[in-house]
Each structure stands twice: as C-alpha cells, then as structure tokens.
C-alpha cells in the first residue's frame, strides 16, 4: 500500500508532497495530540488528524510518518501545503471520516 493507493480507496486527493506518493504505508494512526503522535505513531503509518496547522508537517517528518490524511473535507491552509511540499510529506484530503478511512485502510492492508 502506498500513498496513491490510499488516496484512491478513500476517494481522496493528494494535496502536497507529490514526489513522495510512492511512500509505503504499513498501518494507520489516529490522534490530534502532537506529543502522543510523536511518542506513539508507528513508522511508515498514515496519520489521520483534524489538525491542519503548519506544525503537523514537522511532526510527520520527525516521527517518520508516510502521509497525513485530513478527514471530513477539512480545508488545509496554503502555508501547511507549502511546508509539506518542501519537506516532501504527502497530505491527502478526503470527505470521509477517520473511522471509515481506517476501515478501508485496514481492509486494503489485509489484501496486500
């Protein structure tokens, strides 16, 4: 499973970090508290969060996260996408909620 495939199965769009869409995804992680993400997000996960400020990119980069998934069609500020591009962190936007995204990711990983 890679970022392009995750965007496809969630009906999402890759908004940034397009050169890294081949990043491998081995699991998912849902959390909106950054210290928990730093401590507990598994390497190479798809991180689902409703946070959209620029610092999520630093967290993703430092924690070794494969991509960020912004659920529920929440708008992502341009400054965040610019930073994501410079750090080559893919950000996916989808109208689905985190539960549905997780479910689809899990199903797809089972088939991988």
């Amino acid at each position: 499973m890679n970022v392009t495939e995750l965007a496809e199965i969630t009906g999402g769009t890759v908004l940034s970090g397009r050169e890294s869409v081949g990043n491998s995804i081995s699991t998912g992680y849902c959390c909106d508290l950054l210290s928990h993400v730093m401590a507990d997000a598994p390497q190479n996960c798809a991180w689902m969060t409703v946070l959209t400020h620029t610092n999520i990119i630093a967290v993703a980069e430092l924690a070794g996260i494969s991509c960020i998934v912004i659920p529920e069609g929440i708008a992502v500020p341009p400054a965040t996408l610019e930073k994501a591009d410079s750090e080559q962190i893919p950000v996916i936007s989808t109208v689905l909620g985190s539960y549905e995204i997780s479910w689809r990711l899990h199903e797809a990983l089972q088939e991988d």
């Binding site: 950054l34 210290s35 993400v37 401590a39 946070l51």
Partner: peptide, 16 residues
C-alpha cells in the same frame, strides 16, 4: 486547541 499541551512533553523527553 492546536494539539499541544498534552502534558507529555517532559515525560517524552525523559522516556527517550
């Protein structure tokens, strides 16, 4: 509201 202030900062420093 921005996801900081979980009260995990110093524990994360100590644990790592």
């Amino acid at each position: 509201m921005m996801g900081f202030g979980a009260g995990m900062g110093l524990p994360n420093m100590k644990n790592n």
